[in-house]
Design a protein around this nucleic acid. Structure first.
Lengths: 154, 154
DNA sequence: CATGAAATGCAAAACAATTGCATTAGGGTG
DNA sequence: CACCCTAATGCAATTGTTTTGCATTTCATG
């Protein structure tokens, strides 16, 4: 997704992840702004969860967006279910796209902080249903994180 | 563990979790101080992970320990592998005892922040071995967290 | 019980998240 | 296309924790 078609209200490629995300955002009441497009694009292009600082300082912001703006967008997008906020190992919150039907687990180095998405079959799905029933919790989801020392840091 | 025997260098009950934790701490070079005993006792008696603030402001501190002191103790204990720091859903870090041979998963309400330990058979153990091999990570462990809305907040 | 290292308390600094407010800019309407 | 209302934005200030510096106290050991 290096070079990319223009995203206006009327220009939509159903195959384009950014278009999908923009549509989902608009359906839920967000306006189509430059900053929104930037934030979504950055999250889509990233192969790992990003912090607020990562995004606000990204070179991929077409026009520099203020931290507060990015913060408010991330907050809204999370509430709307477009992105997810993860609590990892350090103090900062990490954000990642929710791609419909996709679930991700992560491998984090506790020394250098590197984050990798794991491409595994997550065995927690059934358990989740069971827990939902027992606990009466709704809107249940889970995070599975593996922590350890990566080869470089060992 | 309401009332409790005195914990000195020479008074040890092998059944007592606090004694065990103190021993583990001493073996790893920590001095036996009032604050250390307090922090360990509070963590042992808690049935859920606690924040720095929870501990520093706990009524169970025999003598008020400074935040910085508690912070440094928690940091050391984590490095020494006596306690574990969890990244949950809000900004603060949560700490919990590591009881040898025990593994815990958590159920967190994203609205009110309540945290419950889950007493389930965690299906991730085998997966962990597999990931350790593939990734070459060492000292691997995992956190499995379920998030959702509790019945009160739904 | 003297001594050196570790631990502590207090205050300040560092950091990331969050909010208030005045201004700007989508986007729906006439 | 001009207009209006409201959402979005930028900037600055606030909050809520975590983290560090330093002088003092306390532990553990010989």
């Amino acid at each position: 997704m290096a070079k990319h078609h223009v995203h206006t209200k009327t220009s939509r490629d159903p195959e384009c992840l950014l278009c999908q995300a923009l549509d989902r955002s608009r359906e839920r009441g967000l306006r189509m702004t430059k900053a929104l497009e930037d934030v979504l694009r950055i999250l889509i292009e990233s192969n790992k969860p990003l912090t607020l600082a990562d995004i606000a300082e990204s070179k991929n912001l077409s026009s520099q967006a203020d931290r507060a703006t990015v913060y408010r967008l991330l907050t809204k997008l999370e509430k709307l279910g477009v992105i997810r906020r993860l609590g990892l190992h350090d103090r900062a919150a990490y954000y990642t796209m929710i791609f419909p039907g996709e679930h991700n687990d992560y491998l984090v180095c506790t020394a250098c902080g590197s984050i990798d998405r794991l491409h595994i079959e997550c065995p927690v799905g059934e358990l989740e249903d069971e827990i939902a029933k027992k606990s009466k919790f709704t809107q249940l989801y889970h995070e599975l994180m593996f922590f350890g020392l990566c080869p470089k840091c060992a």
